[in-house]
Structures are given as C-alpha cells and as structure tokens.
Design a protein around this nucleic acid. Sequence first.
DNA 1: TTGAAAGCGCTAACAA
DNA 2: TTGTTAGCGCTTTCAA
Lengths: 348, 348
Amino acid sequence: MFEPITIKDIAKALGLSTSTVSRALRGGYEISAETKRLVLEYAEKIKYHPNPIALSLKERRSHSIGVVVCEVANNYFSQAINGIESIAYSRGYHVIITQNHESFDLEVVNIQHLASRSVDGLLISLSSETQDLSHIKDLHDRGLPIVFFDRVAADIETHKVVANNYKGAFEATEHLINAGFKKIAHLTNSPTLSISIERLEGYKAALRKYNIPFNAAYLRHCPHGGMIQHEVEIAVNEIVSLPDRPDSIFVAGDRLTTGCMIALKNCGLKIPTDIAITGFTNSDVAGLFDPSLTTVRQPAFKIGQIATEMLIQLIESKRPVTDFETKMLETELFIRNSSSHGITSIIN
Amino acid sequence: MFEPITIKDIAKALGLSTSTVSRALRGGYEISAETKRLVLEYAEKIKYHPNPIALSLKERRSHSIGVVVCEVANNYFSQAINGIESIAYSRGYHVIITQNHESFDLEVVNIQHLASRSVDGLLISLSSETQDLSHIKDLHDRGLPIVFFDRVAADIETHKVVANNYKGAFEATEHLINAGFKKIAHLTNSPTLSISIERLEGYKAALRKYNIPFNAAYLRHCPHGGMIQHEVEIAVNEIVSLPDRPDSIFVAGDRLTTGCMIALKNCGLKIPTDIAITGFTNSDVAGLFDPSLTTVRQPAFKIGQIATEMLIQLIESKRPVTDFETKMLETELFIRNSSSHGITSIIN
DNA sequence: TTGAAAGCGCTAACAA
DNA sequence: TTGTTAGCGCTTTCAA
C-alpha cells in the first residue's frame, strides 16, 4: 500500500540499469557527467530517498545507535538523552530510544530487538531488576559495541561513563551533618545497582568521618527507584515511624526524591523542621519547591555526550578495542532550604 | 565484526535447506514433527533470532511505529509515550521515539528517516515551528498511516487525538476570574500551533462571558514553548512591566508553566499576592511547588493509548480508510494555591 | 562508461 | 515433506 520510490523506478524511467543509477547516486567515479546529472536531477524531482533497510541488510550496519534507559520521564535520563542526540546527530547517527520501565524482561526484549535491528552500538543504563547480564554479555562477546552509563555492569569490560556517585553522596551527607543533623536516613534504589552501592558507600564514609554509627534501620530501598509511588510511601512511612526517628533523609534517586517529598507531605510532616531532606535529582524545578530542595545534580547532558563519543569511537574503530576506560564526572551540590536546620529555616 | 546467527547457520549445521528451516521456525504446516523439533531445539540452543531487517525488506513492514514529539523532557509527552508503549507492546509493535526539539528541520529529518526505515505508521505531534506540512502530506498521500495527537494539522485528513484545549483554557481562565482576578495575562506557545489557537479561544471566551475586554498587550507567545528559558524570561518581564500590570497569568504549556514560575521568582515577585498563576501542565510535582500550583491537566497517557489504537487500526485495516475521526478528551482543573486571591493565600 | 549478476537474511511459490 | 529459486532494495565485483 505504501510504496516508496526505489532505484528501479529511476532506472526504468531513464532507461538505465540499476547499477548505473546506484553509481550516479553515490560518489560517482566511473560514470559520465551527463548520466550522473540526469540521474541526480530525476532523483531530486521524484524525491528519491535510499531505503536504509536495504542498506542495513547489505552493509550490516545502520548508522543508528540504540539507547536503553529505565524511563524518559526522569530528569536525569531525558537530559542524558539530549546529550546523546547532540553528539549522535552531528556524527551522522540516528538515535533509537527504548524504555525498560525497570523491568529485566523488557530490558532483554529491547536490547535483543535493537541488536537484531542492526544498531551499530548500544548505550545502556541497566534496569533496577537486572542481575543476570548474559543477554548483554553475549552481544558484547560477539563484538557489538556497547557503552554503559550511569547504572553500569561491573562484570562487563567495556567503556563506562558515570558520575562520581561516591563523592556526591559523601558531600550530601556531610552537608546534612554540618547543618546539624545527626540521624540521617538513606532512601535509595535497588541495592544491586552500581549507583546504589556507590552512593551508599559515600553516605557511610561521611557518617564515619564524623563518628556517627551507621544504623541499618535507617537504610531503605525502593526496588523500582521511585517509579512506583506506593513503594516510596511505604519506605518513607517506615522511616518516619521508627522509634528513634531520623531528623533527615538523604535520598539517592531522581524520581525517588520527588516521590519522597510527596510522601512526606502526605504524612503531614514539615520539611525541614520535622525532617530535612537532601535529594539526588536533575530536576530543573528543585528551586521552586516548598521548601526549595537541596540537591546533588549530575552532569547528565555531558555524561550522555561522552558516552556517545566513546560508543562512536568503538563503532568506527578499525581494530577490536580491548583497552577500555571508565570516565567519572563530578556532581554538584546545590544547597537550598530543605536541608537547613531549625531556626535558619524559619528565617528563610 | 558483529556476526549474527542466521537461518543459514542452522541449515548448514543440520544439513537442511534454508526454506525447511524457515518453515520449521514459523508456523510449521508442511513439515515433519521430527524435523521441526530438531530445528527448534538447535535454534534455541544457539540463540537464533530472526533478523528483523531482512523481514522488513521482504514484507515491507517492520512491526514498529515511529513517534515524533518535540521533547521527552516534558511531562505531557513522557506520559503520552508511556501510553503509546503500553498499547504498542501489547499489540506486538515496537516504538521508536524521536525528538524534534521544536525545530521544523529536525522534524522533517526524523519523519523522513522513520518513513524510509519502514515504520508501519507514524504518531506525530508537530513542532512549534512547523507550518509547511508537505513532508507529512506526501507520506500520507502515499498511504502511510499517520495519527496526530496534541499538536495536530488542520489540513491533513486523518485520525487525531486531542485534549479539549478550549474547555481546559476556559475553565482555567474562569477560575481566575471567579477567584477575583480581572487583569489576566495569557502566556502561550507559538501562535501557529493548534493547541495555542484552541487555548487562546477558550481564554477569550471566558473573558467574554464575564465582560472583560480582551487586551492584546496581555497576550505573549514563546515560539519555543518554554524549551528556551531565556524566551520565557523576556515574555514574563514584558508582562510584569506593562503599565497596567496584570494581576494573574494563565500559562498554556507544560515547560512554559515551570519556566514562568522560575521567571517570576527571578523577578522577585510573590505568587499569588503579586501575581497569580494557573498553569497547563502534567507535572506530578505541581503540588509541591511554593506556592502549590493550580493546573490544567491533560489525560496524556490515555491520549497516547487512543492515538496508538487508532494508528494500529489504520495499519491493520485491509482496505484504505477514508473515514477519519478526531477524538477529544476532557482536561481536569486542579485548584491549588497559586491562583487564590489576596487574604486567602496568606491563610494558606 | 555501462550492464549483468550475485549476495545481504528471509519467505513463498513452485518443483520434486 | 523437503529443496530450489526468485525477489524485497541496494552495492559491488566482473564483463562487456
């Protein structure tokens, strides 16, 4: 029903062979200037576009890269995607975005589909459910270029781009401590994720530095990283109902941060007087919140850009690459009112 | 370098012809149970996946649908995309998301790429720059199924799914009037967009109902719909510097709404005492803002779902469809503190 | 300078 | 029941 224009249509119309037309269309040595002009003109006239599917089948590459993230409805990822696109387009690649919605099964389906769809490479940030990496390892072993960003796989040797989660978490926690908080809860993503592990370490290190014992009861995980608000409500309720109630929370996730604020509001708790909060989010509107939200912000756009540059370098490399590197970018702490103690916050 | 497993590998290993393998793999009439079992087992063992590129080339369809939106970093669109995916996956289609970043040129490139990439159909929400529709009209005339949602093209006859922008805008404006505001500015997207036109009509109708004259100076457009914060700052500054300064603003766009709040904050103006605001956004955190934000919310997820159902219906229809319909869904007004007048707001 | 033909992975009409 | 072959759109030897 939908019939695209092919090289055959041009060949027939001009009484040439398809191979001549093909030669005229691309590059163009071995062809008379006259024929070339004729073909080019006619192609332009009937708006011919080469069929990339046929090209992919022939060349075994598609000039497109696949992106697998948990969700685009997440400030960090939507910004990272913009970074990815900015580089990809300028280098002549198309970007295909897919979401796993924090589901291992969807991640497998998406990655398999992208790979068999002849993407030239993959940019992956793991789902919070993912533990078995064989679906990725397979492809990687068979030579498909892959770069991880944000949520990386420890067991797969390839380029990786991450934020300095350890330091970001350390600074956020230290900031709460310096603001006078002592009982700092930590609300985070699935414990299997690299980002959760690194941020937990940073949190613990800051406590250690100030001789505050780590209290396991203060640590709460939301396996779906704030995608399911109900999960967040439960975790927050558990935190605020603890016998020795925390005076503050360090929340280590984008959706988790806003979800936590909503949950606290639903509990009827005032921030920061009842409980303070420092978030980990790339939201542009953290400053508009009531109270304005202290956040750790990641260079998401830049991370997307670097990951894409590394991926394209892998794709276009002549010889197999075996020397992989992990790039780490610094986070930034924005201090606002949600983490100021007592009197101060009232003045604000 | 990256060598996928093909039907040939199986044929060779099992000493069969490729067509026998093909038959065993799909459906499987005309084939001995034994051969079938053998093939299936071996395919499973070596993790064979059919090459969708080859399938697309053969069948001239890809079981995937293309989505073109301005940005995924927009609550409305990320929710609509989730709706799209929910239907598409359940019906066996893959979803390819592309962003035009409010650029006409990018929109053309993306649509052309998707079309030639053999997507079976297109879900389009126009860029704010788009006026010339020939790139879409061409494809539509040639039989490519297309459904518009949100920002629709008046001149192209196909299925469309929209929110009741007129009524949503009317209610938002009427609410401001009922709350005691008289000098209501209107900050909106590019004047060429269907949504801008409909919302402006709703705004004007509400003014008319209460005998408030329409003041052209109170109308401000941001051609990039809040994507460029600088544009919003300028527009807001113009509004608040008007000799007869408005007492409130009805903002008709998702990014525009948060952008406007940031701009007002930068002006040092207090909401709602200095100036009130009612937004048009699907943000989940409008209730967390300071002050909490009165908003018109669209059923974005549902709109995405319906658009996708309509598109798949077009794709799978045996005969050419000529009877097109436009579905309109109702918006919902959430009244919060940003639009309450004087005394009330202080109590809040 | 041009054309014929093969092949990328797969399916389907036709033969055996 | 299985194999052979042509063809989807394109590029690329090889021949002419």
